[in-house]
Design a protein around this nucleic acid. Structure first.
Lengths: 133, 133
DNA sequence: CTACGCCCTCAAGCCACTTGAGGTTCAAGC
DNA sequence: GCTTGAACCTCAAGTGGCTTGAGGGCGTAG
């Protein structure tokens, strides 16, 4: 099949497939008249990549996952990739929740104390608040 | 003051200051012998930028915020920037929470059904699950 | 006058693509 | 056989918010 057909079958864009090939994530297929021709195994491989991207794994992580799939590593390896990923998702959620609390506090601080002052004096923009990255 | 002093005073790196100048976020200061010389007003401006970055505003948003500060717009404008930002933070949290639930479900699915099979057959990697961006 | 620290510019790298320019191949219809 | 149009090709640049590095200039203290 040609690249456009593969793209639809796996649910990714054509340039993305070429990009994955260029970085070595997807192997280079055969060519006919300069055009890429894919076998059905590519649908599987690319669908797996897309599935992992849907789960927000990075391409580096996906590269490791693909290697473990090809090695037919035990499933526990896959699980540990997922667990590590889950921890990083939870870390991000915690960071965002803390940010949410900070911003929400500033907004309500503005409502109660600013009383329509000018922007330069708004409590939201005062750097004195404790916010360290 | 020179760029290194400003950087310490405002808590940002020297290249970051030059970067902000290059994209027009910070105005170009006077020069002496080719070197940038800053007045104390730059500490204020840069600290404000840093404060907004700490709150995870984008540089585009910060540019709008700085404009409203210079215009001495009413504080309600600032608040509406913050509220919009808060909504986008909450949207991201919701996305991450849904992702967290998906990945957590896959991990426990693996624990209960995979029983140590090989990676290609692990439930975590099966694209059949409903996961659409 | 030398050594050192700070400053300068410009370019490239990060991530995961997308977009665009400019050209080639393929399949269908006449 | 010829034309048209879609799909394909490569290569380069853009996105965001910086960081890192190369290769050099300036200022001052000893």
């Amino acid at each position: 099949m040609r690249i456009g057909v593969l793209a639809k079958a796996a649910g990714v864009s054509v340039p993305t497939i070429r990009y994955y090939e260029s970085i070595g994530l997807l192997s280079a297929p055969a060519r006919q008249g300069g055009q890429r021709v894919y076998g059905s195994e590519y649908v599987k491989a690319l669908s797996l990549i897309r599935h992992c991207r849907d789960l927000d794994f990075s391409l580096d992580e996906i590269s490791d996952i693909l290697a473990s799939v090809q090695r037919r590593s035990p499933c526990s390896d896959t699980k540990s990739f997922a667990e590590q990923h889950l921890r990083s998702i939870r870390r991000k959620i915690a960071e965002l929740r803390s940010l949410e609390a900070t911003v929400a506090a500033l907004v309500s601080g503005c409502e109660t104390t600013c009383c329509g002052s000018a922007a330069p004096d708004c409590v939201i923009l005062q750097p004195s608040q404790a916010c360290c990255r």
